[in-house]
Every structure is written in C-alpha cells, then in structure tokens.
Design a protein around this nucleic acid. Structure first.
Lengths: 249, 249
DNA sequence: TTCAGTTAAAGTCGATCTGACCCTAAGTCA
DNA sequence: TGACTTAGGGTCAGATCGACTTTAACTGAA
C-alpha cells in the first residue's frame, strides 16, 4: 500500500475529491444500416438516454459499472446485452479515458470516473432485435455514428469524442485487418462487402480493383451459390473462413 | 513502490470479492542500450523488485495507484519519474488489463486490481540517470526487454505478457508511425536510426534502401553537420522536425 | 605519401502493387 | 428482341520494394 493513497472509506463530502476513482465500462456498438435519405448503408450506433443528472435527458453510450466478479471484456459484453439485447460479433477494447473533468459539467463537483471503453461490430440482423424486444425502447435508439448529438445540444460527457476516436480506429483497422465481415451475414456478395468498406471509409472504391485485391485473400472463399432476385446478373456469394476474431490490436 | 497491491483495507476474505476493483497505473519503459555481448544496441527496460507479497523478491513493472487529482497520463508520468528519475520522450496508453486472476498466484485470494498500462520511449542519455540518482538503486535495474525474468522464476503478476504485448505494439507502430526518433538525441546519423529499427524489428535492413525510404520523408531534414571522430567517412547528421508526439494510436 | 579498408551515398534493375480504365458475360425489364 | 445494368475479367502506366552495384570520402597502417 502506498503513501499516495488517501484514506478512502467513510470520507465526507469535502473529501470526495480524495475518493479513489470509480471504474465504469462503456461500449461503442457499430452496425451498418441503410440510411433513409441515401440508398447506401451508413454506420449507426445505439445510444441510451440518461435519466439522471448529470446530463439528464441527453444521449450517452451504453455502459455501467464493473462488477467484482467479471473481467473487463465480460462486463462490456454484459452491458451490451442488457442495454441493447445484442451479442457482439466482434468486441475489442478501445481506450481507457480518465481525464479529471469528464464526469461532470465544468464547475460541478462529483466523483472521478475512469471509463474503459470497448467497441463492437454487430450484424444487421442482430441489430433489428433491439427496439422490438426491450420494454424501455423509448430510451434506447439508433443514431448515425458521424452526426449523433448534433442538433440536440451534444452527447453526454465526452462521448462525442469517444465515438470519433472509435470511428478513427474502425477506419484504420479496416485497412489492414479483416474485420469487415463482422458487419455481414455468413455469406455475402463482393458488392455488399465493398459497400461496407465504402460506408466505413467514406469514399467510393473501384469495383474491379476491389475484386482483384480480395481474390488474393485466401480466407475469402467463393461458394457455388448466387444471390437471386436482383434486377440484374446474379452475383456469386462468398464466405469468410478465417479466424472469428483476431487476437491482436 | 509496487504496481499492484494486495488485500488492502482490512476486509476479510469473504468480503474481498465484493470490493470494487482498485485501479493502478503501470509503465513499460523502453530504452535502447548497447548490449554487453554483441556490439549492437538492444531494447532494455527498468524493473522494480517487489518488497512485499505477493511475488515478493521478483521483478515487476514500475507502477502505483492512481491519485485522485491526476489524469491517467499524469499518473504514468509521475510514477515513471519517481521510480526511475526519467521524463519520457514519448508516452502512450497501452491497454487496460482487468482479468480476474492477475493480482495473485492461483489459489490465493486478494483484491481485484485493474491496471492501466502505459508505454514510454526514453533517450539513452536520460536512461543513464537512473541507477546513479536513486537511493534504492538496489531495487531498480535495467533488464533486456525480450528475456527479462527468464532464469529467475519469471516476472511478477502477468507482467511478462504485458511486456510482450508492448513489444508487439512498439514493433507494429514503428512500421507506420514516426516514433524511432524518440530513442535518439536531437541529431542522429542515418546509420544510428537504422540501428534503432534493426534492434526493434530484430532483423537487418539494407542500408541503401533504408536511406532511400527516409529521403522521401520530409520530416527528416539533413543538417550541415557531420559526425566526426569515426574511423571512416563522416556521416551527415539529420534532425527530425515533425510533431513531438502524434495524437493517434 | 600511398594504399587498403570501411562506410556514406547514390544509382540500377526486375518483381510486385496500385489506380484508372476498358471490355465482355449474363442476367432483367420494357 | 434490344436496351440497360451489374458481374467479372483484363490492360496499362506509374509507384514501390528488395537485392545489388558503383562511386565518393575518410581513416589508419605501411
């Protein structure tokens, strides 16, 4: 035990600043959903409306405290399931945020909170379950990842910055790691996969070059099935056969 | 000072599991030092010998609890200074480790500890200060990053895995980010910079190709000075003029 | 003073990769 | 049947990379 540690238990209000920081887990949950205005899919994430101060009434990332008997990742998985009903296809730690002024509006005192944030990718089929199943559907809703909180006085805490950081991580990781499949179902066409890349990276990709690059990836196997029902030539369906989740960061 | 502290508040065993997890900060501090056997420089890091249970007598990463009034990064910077006398040239968050069984040997109960680990790069001139200045020099010593704890019954806690993860991050980041300069002084020759890359990546690099690649990086500016005193043609000194620390991860 | 040894620094060459573009195949719809 | 649209394959120029060669510049020993 260290001398730096101020006596923690039974502290009164004036000593609150001396309380050890409390730990919370939050998750940024990305899903690809068709946008209303454009036909192309865009990135969405579920947010939870706060029912108490601070930031009462504003939208925030789903999260909660860390229980004593679960690992960090288990905690992220649990509060993701509890708030949204989703089981993540892909889950990874994003960052630990521990600035001094993030738990409250400037000028108001409250206990220091350190948040360990995870980010997750889910499939659109899972993503549909959300609003239907939950009783408090009122207070859980999908928002566009890039504009969430824009016309509403902003998001709670520093959650807007956290989402931007998660977006940056998703974009850079997409370029060297094979994570795009986690947005899709078991089989998919190359055009669907390309739409994932275009939505995440925010720019169009040449279909022919995209195809050529993916053909050099052995983990993407062509099936002998084709997607029928389109207006045009039916595209071949592919399957991802690599490891479900990379261990690296 | 220790990274993780055992059973802290006099709680009895049955209550221990219900205590909120405590927070600690640790740092992996890399420096490039000439190895004794080979002439080439290799990666070293300072470790602290534990003076209490658990893992008494074994080597551990420097670290300590998070004070209530400092940010995570400030805490890392402070305990780095306190244990080694160093001010890091480069400092970045590595990961938050929060597994259930990391604070103790299997079978022994103790309080749950979540460690937020930072990693740092320091210059060799700074690195020399260490052993001289500190009174408890006995319990702080440099170890080779790749073999620390090998013949000594291992490192304390999960610190060997944490170091391996930090090594992996350093290697992958070296390949796309400009961080190698933080190991060197203000000016350096291209051969010195290449030695940094070779030591970190663990493989030789072609001097001519290395030079060609660096010439395309505008942040590396040639000075009009040359390193005299060598046995051969004096190499030109270069300077890094980019931002001191990238904001990205 | 000369020459051997060593490193600095620049250039060459073939293989590979990338982006932009074109062409044909195969389906749907009017 | 023919216009239209997407699938899927190919071409070509420029950039990059690894392996290698060549020349310049300095030191130290003969």
């Amino acid at each position: 035990m260290s001398t730096l540690f101020a006596g923690p238990f039974g502290a009164n209000v004036s000593e609150r600043a001396q309380l050890p920081p409390s730990l919370a887990i939050s998750t940024v949950i990305f899903a690809l959903k068709p946008s209303r205005d454009v036909g192309k899919p865009t990135l969405w994430l579920p947010l939870v409306r706060r029912v108490k101060e601070p930031f009462k009434g504003q939208w925030a990332l789903p999260g909660g405290p860390l229980a004593a008997t679960e690992s960090l990742e288990d905690a992220a998985r649990r509060n993701l399931r509890e708030t949204t009903g989703l089981a993540p296809e892909y889950l990874e730690q994003l960052y630990a945020f521990g600035g001094l002024n993030r738990a409250h509006r400037p000028g108001q005192g409250s206990q220091r909170v350190v948040s360990i944030v995870y980010w997750a990718l889910v499939r659109p089929t899972e993503a549909e379950l959300l609003v239907e199943g939950e009783a408090e559907a009122e207070n859980v809703a999908w928002h566009r990842a890039d504009t969430a909180g824009d016309g509403e006085g902003g998001l709670a805490f520093d959650h807007r910055e956290i989402i931007d950081y998660a977006l940056w991580r998703l974009r850079s990781k997409l370029e060297y790691a094979q994570i795009a499949y986690h947005f899709l179902g078991e089989t998919f066409t190359l055009a669907q996969l390309r739409e994932v890349y275009e939505a995440v990276l925010g720019r169009p990709l040449d279909p022919a070059n995209f195809r050529r690059q993916l053909k050099s990836v052995p983990q993407i196997e062509p099936t002998d099935q084709f997607l029928e029902g389109g207006k045009h030539r039916p595209p071949r369906l592919y399957r991802y056969t690599g490891p479900a989740q990379r261990s690296t960061t």
